[in-house]
């Protein structure tokens, strides 16, 4: 067996566990960049940085911060801006009555207008909304992943939601 092969395999297992959330994070931070490629690079960087990881600290936000930084770097060179990749189908809420075709159409419109508005936000605003609502990170995790103080998460999110409402206001569907 090669030196360290056991550790590499153990790490590969960690990669498997976190790859989906890592790619998702890379995508919402930098929708125009290749999220899979950014996540791969971030995992390699995390491996190199692993000796600096504080034992006992939560691993996920530590990893996702590396992913977010990698994605941001790529955002700058990704060129033409593309939006979030969103599935077109509307899932039926399981705890609701089946929506009528009209309601489904409205839901589709609503989602489309929301995607458009989110895509028009500044990176800073989109990041905090993505962390809290798309990645469902806690405030503490959001602070770590985005590299901002915890108190800033609240205020930035509040402002971002305000601007998102304004965007929706300007271009109603």
């Amino acid at each position: 067996m090669r030196a360290g092969a056991g550790e590499v395999m153990a790490y590969e297992e960690l990669v498997r566990r976190y790859q989906d959330v890592a790619v998702r994070t890379a995508h919402v931070i930098a929708p125009a960049a290749d999220a899979d490629d950014a996540a791969q690079e971030a995992f390699v960087k995390a491996w190199i940085a692993l000796p600096r990881f504080r034992v006992g600290a939560p691993f996920r936000p530590w990893l996702l911060r590396i992913v977010a930084n990698e994605a941001r770097n790529r955002r700058r060179s990704a060129g033409r801006r593309e939006g979030l990749a969103v599935r077109a189908t509307i899932d039926r809420p399981s705890d609701d009555a089946a929506p009528s075709p009209e309601a489904a159409a409205l839901a589709g419109e609503r989602r489309a207008s929301l995607v458009g508005a989110v895509n028009r936000l500044r990176d800073e605003d989109r990041e905090v909304i993505a962390a809290r609502y798309f990645l469902e990170l806690s405030e503490a995790e959001t602070a770590e992943v985005l590299g901002i103080p915890r108190g800033t998460v609240k205020s930035r999110l509040s402002r971002a939601l305000g601007r998102l409402r304004a965007e929706l206001d300007e271009v109603p569907t």
Binding site: D20, H27, L84, I129, Y133
Partner: peptide, 16 residues
């Protein structure tokens, strides 16, 4: 809005 954002999050299609 918050509910809609969570719903949108669930529809984001970016698997590894």
């Amino acid at each position: 809005l918050e509910v809609a954002l969570r719903d949108l999050g669930g529809a984001i299609d970016a698997p590894a």
